[in-house]
Structure formats: C-alpha cells, structure tokens
Design a protein around this nucleic acid. Structure first.
Lengths: 144, 144
DNA sequence: ATTATTGTAGACTAGATTAGTCAACAATAA
DNA sequence: TTATTGTTGACTAATCTAGTCTACAATAAT
C-alpha cells in the first residue's frame, strides 16, 4: 500500500511553500526548482490544494501561491485527503452501501481500524510541526 | 492508498479456510466457490501463504490446504505482509539507503509513523479473533 | 499400473492507474 | 501592450493490477 508520488511531491511542495512564503507569494517555478519537480507536474499537484482553499494564488507578474491559513492550522490529514483521497484501504469503509455485507463483515472492521489509525497519525501533525522539526535538524530537507 | 484485491481476497480465503478446516484439508475449489473467487486466481493468492509456511497443502484426491498454525497464532500483520508487502507507504521507510536525505527528512518521519500505526492495528488481531467476531454476529460473512 | 483429482508454476494479456508532458488560455503588473 | 505567472484539459508512455491459460506434478482410488 503505497502513497502516490502526487502525494509525496505535493506534501514536499506544501512544506517548501510554508518555509518560503515569508516574503510574499512563492512562484511555482521556484518550488519546482528547489524540489526537483517539473513545473507542469507541480501545477497539477497544487490545483487540488487551491480548490480546497488551503492555498491561494495570483496570476501574472509578482504572482504565485501562498497558504490560506497559518501552518499550524493545516493538519496533514487534510493535506493527504486532498492529494491522495481517503485513507480507507477498502472502498466499503467509506461507502458501506456498495457491499450488502458491510454491516456484518468482520474484515471490514479491520479495514476501518486501519483507516482510523492513519487518520489519527496524520491529524496529530501540522505543517508547523514539520517546519519546526526541519529547523531542529541541521540540514533537514524533505525528499521523499 | 488502497489494498489490492489480492490482499482482500486472500484474507477472506484464509478466514474461510480457518472456519472450514475442522474436517480435514479444504479444497481450493470449495473456497473459490464459497468466496466467489475464480479458482485460478485463488491459487495465486494462496501460493505466498504456503511458501511462507502459514498454510500447508497436499495434492491429489483428498488433497487441499490447511493452516500450519492455530488461528490464534496467525496475526493479520503477517498475513498482510505476505499478500500486500510492507505497510510502509513510501519505500524509504524500509530502505533508508535509497534516499540520501533519509536521515534528516521530516516527511519520512510521518511515513514511518503511518507504517507503525498500521502494523500495530494488524498485529493486534489474529485469525481467531476474526472467527470469534464472525460467530458473534448472526450471519456475518467476510465480503470485502 | 492407470486414472481422476487435486495443487504448482509460470507465461501471458486486457484494462486501469500513475506519472507525467504539451498546448492553449486567462489574468495581472510593469 | 507585453512579459510573466497561474489554469485547464487533452494526451501519452510506462507500470501495475487482476486476472486467464496451459502444462505439469503428486496423490488416492480403482
């Protein structure tokens, strides 16, 4: 069960943005360069974050993107939900109606516990936490 | 992040086996029929379980498969590891060497926490637990 | 010994998904 | 007006998933 590169790159991009937004809008071009992601691909990663309202953007000269909320208000569970979708490892966890046995299926209970465990881990960490941890380590940089 | 059908079907097959093995070897044909899985596909699901030694088999008439250990000795983390592979959502969690920044990457720490959370959930449940839960519910049947 | 029955192994394939690229467009500041 | 920046969606190559198909190996019943 692997996260997509979309999620990994998107998370890195968001952390990069959080770190570099002090001086105003950050250009996608610069994030792409720092994170070694192609600009065209990065655009697709950022789109869902903008649509969801956790990132804002402006076009044209001096344009760029910035966080719509402070880093401590952005939890990773929101981020991963936008980039990757639900943490439910099986569809029936979120949509019991797709399987007639959902109400009594014992494996479904396990899949549900897995989802909750992931949600809990991700909800316990904010972008600010990642920034702090990165500052704590000398040359810590997200590369996953 | 979704589990493959291989894992979902394999888990169901194993639970089916645990429930039906009282009267000796269970034939793949019968598991396939009860669980609505094609026989040829089921064979592939069972192979890794046999190779890992948690299921044993015999060919020919009166052949079939059975659990090599008691259901309470078979934890779900073993099962999912065999069917799905590691719970690491990113490769670098298991193999830090593939990325030069693994030692200082702040997102890797999160991916590592996710893996641990999944491992903990799955290690806390055995096949016997699933059997007990199924017996507790009236017509509970695994269908995921 | 022969045969029907069962599991084993691996090549193969269709379809879905992922990880992107490319081109045209829209908005803004200089 | 123009250069610069983000937006959108079509498109594609490569990979992965979910299987099927064929030949084979071992065993029990006859």
């Amino acid at each position: 069960m692997k996260l997509s590169t979309k999620t990994r790159y998107g998370t890195r991009a968001l952390l990069d943005l959080a770190i570099n937004q002090e001086k105003g809008p950050v250009q996608l071009k610069d994030i792409a360069q720092r994170q070694s992601i192609s600009l065209t691909y990065l655009e697709h990663l950022v789109t869902p974050l903008i649509n969801a309202g956790i990132v804002r953007s402006a076009r044209g000269r001096k344009g760029g993107i910035w966080l719509a909320k402070s880093p401590q208000e952005i939890r990773l569970d929101e981020v991963i939900l936008l980039l990757e979708g639900s943490n439910a490892p099986v569809e029936c966890v979120d949509r019991p109606d797709i399987c007639p046995r959902s109400g009594s299926c014992v494996t479904r209970d396990i899949w549900t516990e897995m989802k909750k465990a992931l949600d809990d881990v991700l909800a316990a960490t904010t972008l600010q936490d990642l920034m702090d941890r990165q500052n704590a380590g000398t040359q810590a940089v997200a590369r996953s």
